[in-house]
Amino acid sequence: MEWYILRSDKWFWLLLLSLPLSVLLSLSTGPVELNWSAITGDGVAGQVFWQLRLPRLLLTLMAGALLAITGGAAQSLFRNPLADPGLIGVSAGAALSAGLMMVLLGSYISLLGGFLLPLAAFLGGVATTLLVARLAGSLQGVSVTTMLLCGIAINAIAAAGLGGLKYLAADQELRQLSFWLLGSLNHSRWQDLLVLALVAVPVLLLLPRFGQKLNLLLLGEQQASLLGLNVLRCKRVIILLIALGVGAVVALTGIISFMGLVVPHLIRLMFGPDNRRLLPLSALLGATMLTLADVLSRVLVAPAELPVGVVTALVGGPFFLLMLLHRRRSAL
């Protein structure tokens, strides 16, 4: 991570300070008011803190950071700020693969210590990303229109497949699948966090190291190749990291929309397109924003709880429309 680029930036420190504030807000929010002096004991406060709120917070932080940083990398890789993993079908492919595993092989998910479901989602994300890159790529670069059309087709196919799985699923599997597709941070267990951490740590450490290479790819593949970049190898590694991050998050939280679109775009507006800044700052802001969205999901309809994917979609949908309107006006 290119920390020397960030140290002198006051906005970086503002983002850094906003993270612990959102963490404290998340830990303090819930139907049970915590007695902070009692969280080290075996009482209700200790159980709520250690078994519910802390693992949920850690899941939220890692999921938000992964969704944002992979969204930023995808936008730079495809050279378009609309290339969110959800819009181009990566999340849908990962969700369909995980849904197949959940409904058809539900009794085997506990095998390998819970690694089977994230592995299935990862493979689905890899296959979808490679398909989009193959269909949208050409000698002239990536066709944005083709990329978005591929995303529409893949999302439609995944929706049809998931609809079929709902029809085949038993009552318990149907309820689990339906709630999971809305995006939820409820089912956060320490063993799930271990699985996600094994993915999050390498992705969050490796993707920022490709910042300068992504900057070269923004110039075009031919220009990047002339400047000494092994374009094919670089693209393969970045695609695998994107699919790994998205697949692991989808497997554990379901589909959380628009995080990979909104967060990198905000960072790009504030700090510019340099991926050495964009990627680490996107991870930081993504963790903060998903934490705040999780807090909103718990307070908007309290004592009930909204799926966090509904909250992010309610915010991200209008933002996406504003982006399209801005791009249209800029083109006039």
Score class of each variant (00 low, 15 high):
249 V>K: 04
243 A>R: 06
190 W>G: 06
227 L>T: 11
220 G>F: 02
254 G>S: 09
188 S>G: 11
197 A>R: 07
201 V>R: 10
189 R>I: 04
239 I>G: 00
227 L>H: 03
246 V>M: 09
181 L>G: 06
227 L>D: 13
179 F>L: 15
212 Q>T: 05
177 L>Y: 03
253 T>D: 05
224 A>F: 02
220 G>T: 08
207 L>P: 02
216 L>P: 01
252 L>F: 07
179 F>Q: 13
191 Q>F: 08
217 L>V: 01
238 I>A: 02
238 I>L: 13
197 A>E: 08
243 A>M: 08
192 D>W: 08
229 L>T: 07
210 F>R: 00
234 C>T: 15
217 L>K: 01
192 D>N: 14
221 E>T: 01
199 V>Y: 11
224 A>Q: 04
196 L>F: 08
237 V>I: 15
240 L>Y: 14
224 A>R: 03
216 L>K: 04
259 M>Y: 10
228 G>H: 09
204 L>D: 06
215 N>Y: 03
244 L>Q: 08
243 A>K: 11
232 L>Y: 06
227 L>C: 05
204 L>M: 09
230 N>V: 07
197 A>F: 14
203 V>Q: 09
259 M>R: 04
256 I>H: 11
180 W>M: 01
244 L>C: 15
181 L>C: 06
220 G>R: 05
223 Q>V: 13
218 L>W: 02
193 L>N: 15
198 L>T: 12
198 L>A: 13
210 F>K: 03
254 G>A: 13
223 Q>C: 01
214 L>N: 02
254 G>H: 13
247 G>H: 12
244 L>G: 11
191 Q>I: 05
230 N>F: 01
216 L>S: 02
219 L>G: 01
214 L>D: 00
251 A>K: 12
209 R>P: 00
237 V>H: 09
186 N>R: 07
252 L>M: 08
197 A>T: 15
208 P>G: 04
192 D>F: 12
212 Q>M: 08
200 A>T: 07
185 L>R: 04
206 L>N: 00
250 V>N: 10
207 L>M: 10
224 A>E: 05
252 L>V: 08
202 P>W: 03
253 T>V: 15
262 V>A: 14
202 P>E: 02
250 V>Q: 12
189 R>S: 14
258 F>L: 04
262 V>Q: 12
249 V>M: 09
250 V>M: 03
219 L>T: 09
228 G>M: 10
185 L>C: 07
182 L>Q: 07
253 T>M: 00
230 N>E: 14
199 V>L: 14
256 I>W: 05
185 L>E: 05
228 G>D: 12
241 L>E: 03
238 I>H: 02
189 R>H: 14
214 L>M: 13
198 L>H: 03
200 A>H: 04
240 L>V: 15
218 L>I: 02
180 W>H: 11
255 I>D: 06
260 G>I: 04
244 L>A: 15
204 L>P: 10
181 L>H: 09
237 V>K: 05
242 I>C: 07
231 V>F: 02
228 G>N: 11
230 N>A: 15
222 Q>H: 13
221 E>D: 14
223 Q>S: 13
203 V>R: 02
204 L>T: 06
245 G>Q: 11
237 V>R: 05
241 L>H: 07
200 A>D: 04
250 V>C: 02
240 L>I: 14
251 A>S: 15
258 F>Y: 15
234 C>W: 00
177 L>F: 01
